[in-house]
C-alpha cells in the first residue's frame, strides 16, 4: 500500500532523514517510533505531499507522490502534529468544508460528516465553535478531519498528543477499529502505544531507520541473554561466587554503583543467564539455604522500551531501572544510566 524507497530530505547542510526505506501492507497499522527530532514528522509530511523529498521515491496506493500528487492526496487522510483547525468555524461547518476540498460529492457531504462525527464521538459538540473546544475535542476533530473522505491510507502524527489517559484509550480503540479497512501509519514516542495498537514498528533515529519489525520480534532479536534480578538483604562474597557457579549463569553483576543498598536494605544483583535457561529456582534454593535474606527475585524480559533505548543511544541501555515504569512514556521515565545522551537529545529538540 505504501512503499518508501531511499527517501532523503536535506535542509541546506542539515539532513533530516537519510535513505528511509520501508513498506506498509494494506490494512496494517505501523508505528513510527523515535526520539523527538528523529525525522518522523518529516517522513510523514513527505508521504502526504506537504513536503517534497530531496531524493528517493514514495508510492501510496500505487501512485508516485511526485508524479501524481493529487491522486495520492485523494487517498490519504492526514492528522498533522499541529491541528489544522479554523477556530471561527463550528465542527460541522469545518468537517463539511474539509469534505468538500477532499472531493466528497455534494450528495454525500451530510453522510460523511455524520459518519465522522459519530466515529470520533463529536455529537455533543458538533454545533460549537472549534475555538471554544477543549484540547481533547480538538484532537478528535483533527482525527475526524483525517477520516472524513474515508481514505484508504491514514497518516497520524502523534494522534494521542496532549490527551488525558481516558481520551488516549478512546483514541487507541478508535485506531484499532480502523485497522484492516485502512492502512495506518502513526508516529509516537510513547512505546506502550506502539505495542498496544501496531502490528509493526519502524524505529527512526537521527533520520535513519534503525529497525523494522513486530514489537515482539524486535525485543527477542536484541535479547542476547536473559537476566534475573535478585534483591537480598545479606549478600556475601561466598554466596555470590556460589550463584555465579550455578549451571547456566554467565555472570553476576552487582547493580552499580557497587555495594549500594536499596531503601529496604537489600542489595541488587543482576544475573546474566544463557538464553532459554531458567535459573530462578536453583538460585532461590541456594540463597535461602545460605540465609541470604532473599526479598525479591524476578526474570527480566527486555521490553520494547529497552530495545528502543539500545537502538537510539550509543551506550547500551541498562534495563535495571526501567522496569519500574513499564507503562509510562519515555518522557516520564527517569533516564537510565548510559542513556544520558538520549535524554539530552530529547531536551535539545524540544
Amino acid at each position: 500500500m505504501i512503499e518508501v524507497d531511499q527517501l532523503t530530505k536535506r535542509y541546506g547542510s542539515l539532513t533530516a532523514i537519510e535513505a528511509v526505506t520501508f513498506r506498509v501492507e494494506p490494512g496494517e497499522v505501523l508505528a513510527f517510533l523515535g526520539p523527538n527530532g528523529a525525522g518522523k514528522t518529516t517522513t510523514m509530511r513527505i508521504l502526504t505531499g506537504a513536503l517534497p523529498a530531496t531524493s528517493g521515491h514514495a508510492r501510496v496506493a500505487g501512485y508516485d507522490i511526485d508524479e501524481s500528487p493529487l491522486e495520492v492526496k485523494q487517498r490519504i487522510g492526514y492528522l498533522p502534529e499541529t491541528l489544522p483547525l479554523y477556530p471561527e468555524m463550528t465542527v460541522t461547518e469545518y468537517l463539511r468544508y474539509v469534505a468538500r476540498i477532499k472531493g466528497v460529492a455534494r450528495g454525500g457531504l451530510r453522510r460523511s460528516v455524520d459518519v465522522a462525527v459519530e466515529r470520533c464521538a463529536l455529537g455533543q459538540v458538533r454545533g460549537r465553535l472549534i475555538g471554544n473546544l477543549s484540547r481533547g475535542y480538538r484532537q478528535r476533530v483533527g482525527l475526524a478531519q483525517a477520516l472524513i473522505h474515508d481514505p484508504p491510507v491514514l497518516i497520524l502524527d502523534e494522534p494521542t498528543g496532549g490527551l488525558d489517559p481516558k481520551q488516549i484509550i478512546e483514541i487507541r480503540e478508535l485506531i484499532k477499529t480502523l485497522a484492516g479497512a485502512h492502512t495506518v501509519i502513526l508516529s509516537t514516542h510513547i512505546l506502550p502505544e506502539a505495542t498496544a495498537i501496531c502490528q509493526r514498528v519502524v524505529i527512526i533515529h537521527k533520520g535513519r531507520v534503525v529497525a523494522v519489525d513486530t514489537p515482539e520480534r524486535l525485543a527477542a532479536q536484541l535479547r542476547g541473554s536473559e537476566q534475573v534480578k535478585i534483591a537480598l538483604r545479606r549478600p556475601t562474597e561466598a554466596l555470590r561466587t556460589a550463584v555465579a557457579g550455578l549451571p547456566g549463569v554467565l555472570a553476576v553483576l552487582p547493580e552499580a554503583p557497587a555495594g549500594a543498598v536499596r531503601d529496604d536494605g537489600a542489595t541488587v544483583w543482576l544475573i546474566d543467564c544463557e538464553q532459554g535457561r531458567d535459573v530462578r529456582e536453583a538460585a532461590a534454593r541456594l540463597i535461602v539455604g545460605a540465609d541470604g535474606g532473599l526479598v525479591e527475585l524476578s526474570a527480566m524480559a527486555m521490553s520494547l522500551e529497552e530495545v528502543f533505548l539500545q537502538l537510539t543511544t550509543d551506550a547500551p541501555a541498562r534495563p535495571d531501572r526501567l522496569d519500574d515504569v513499564p507503562a509510562a512514556g519515555l518522557n516520564d521515565a527517569s533516564p537510565p544510566r548510559g542513556s544520558a545522551q538520549f535524554a539530552q537529545q530529547s531536551k535539545d529538540t524540544e
Partner: peptide, 10 residues
C-alpha cells in the same frame, strides 16, 4: 498551520 490541511488535500 491550516496550510498543512490545504497542502495535503487534493
Amino acid at each position: 498551520k491550516t496550510s498543512e490541511l490545504l497542502l495535503t488535500s487534493p
